[in-house]
Computed example of a mutant assay.
Amino acid sequence: MKKNLLDLDYIINADNYRNIQDSIADATDMAIITVDYKGKPITHHSKCTNLCKFVRSHPKLSHICEKCDSRGGLEAARLNQPYIYLCHMGIVDFAIPIAVDGQYLGAVMGGQVRVEDASEMESLEKITSQKTDILEYINKNELKELYQSLPVMKLQKVRANAAMIYNICNYIVGEAVLKINLSDGAISKETGYNNYQNKKTSVNTEKLSINTTKKDEHTHGELLNSRENIILKPALDYIEKYYTRNISLNNMASLCNISTSYFSKLFRRTIGDNFSNYINRIRIKKARELLETTDIPITNIALDLGFEDSGYFIKVFKKFEGVTPSKFRNDAL
């Protein structure tokens, strides 16, 4: 297995995933946090209850909470399915394993609820047998009040929510791994690419070809026809349409639902140039057209094409064309 596929934060877009996590927590009325295989959080704690915030603020009790999370995740990985259990506070929690090719990467930890029918709790395992005198650390009345404030639901509903999150996580991680494997050539075009072809994800290479020589156009066309564009297509489409805007690397990575570091690496490998040069190359191509066919002032062309000022535009133009915009215009007359 590739080393990068062992890094959960690498194969998913953490920022986008956090938004999904928040939405699921709101929809299910359950607390959720995602951790890597070491138990280190890669997201914040969505909808964490006041009781759990209170308990985790006490070092000795927080240590037991961490043990519960660790054991819950490992047990879910062993079972390869959602694992619902009771934490040391008697609260219903669950762990959703995240694995790639049988390798445990981390888990989605959720729950922090009370079960409507107390008798149903008898079927749940208490994840830790460590005994703690809770009242030694927490005021009895305050504990009772916080416990009563926990969301209440049927165990069947807890199971349904855990199953839903399990399926969502499998889909998100599976799609991310598929994209990485496709871009690295680890799986064939036939086995993984056809599903995307059915969704009409091919790129219009004629519109996106920006190089100035026949040789460059041919090379660029080959790149645009490659399987990497399954991933990069949303960004390439956006840049083609909005190249005059201020386009950031972070926003384009988010649009493709991959991490910024992976987007940058994949973009350079696929296009053969870095992100900023690619955008500037498109702008300069348009600038050449305007300089050859109009008498629009150079300053206006620079601003219209998204450059901060004419000085930077002139610098970039000379880098690509070997001459200044004014000389290029004069030579074209």
Score class of each variant (00 low, 15 high):
59 P>Y: 11
77 A>R: 09
213 T>E: 05
18 R>L: 13
307 F>D: 02
173 V>S: 06
107 A>M: 06
84 I>W: 01
170 N>G: 15
144 K>P: 01
306 G>S: 04
151 P>L: 03
237 D>W: 00
295 D>R: 01
123 S>K: 06
233 K>P: 01
194 N>W: 14
287 A>N: 08
210 I>S: 13
254 S>R: 03
89 M>N: 08
114 R>G: 04
126 K>R: 13
248 S>D: 00
261 S>M: 04
108 V>N: 10
191 T>F: 14
271 I>P: 01
166 Y>A: 10
11 I>S: 03
268 R>V: 01
327 K>W: 11
245 R>V: 04
103 Q>C: 12
277 N>H: 07
179 K>C: 04
286 K>H: 14
314 I>M: 09
148 Q>P: 01
266 L>E: 09
233 K>F: 10
266 L>K: 09
211 N>L: 14
331 D>C: 05
85 Y>G: 08
186 A>R: 08
47 K>I: 07
179 K>Y: 07
123 S>V: 09
316 V>M: 10
152 V>D: 02
184 D>P: 00
77 A>G: 03
97 P>D: 09
203 V>S: 04
58 H>C: 12
177 V>G: 01
316 V>G: 02
14 A>P: 04
5 L>I: 15
21 Q>P: 05
285 K>R: 11
269 R>N: 11
199 K>H: 14
303 L>R: 07
204 N>P: 02
172 I>C: 09
72 G>D: 01
35 V>N: 01
68 C>P: 05
231 I>M: 13
101 D>I: 03
315 K>V: 03
307 F>W: 05
80 N>L: 07
167 N>R: 13
167 N>G: 15
248 S>Q: 05
182 L>P: 06
258 I>K: 00
308 E>W: 11
135 L>T: 13
42 I>A: 03
67 K>Y: 15
246 N>H: 08
294 T>M: 03
79 L>K: 14
188 S>L: 06
300 N>I: 13
2 K>V: 11
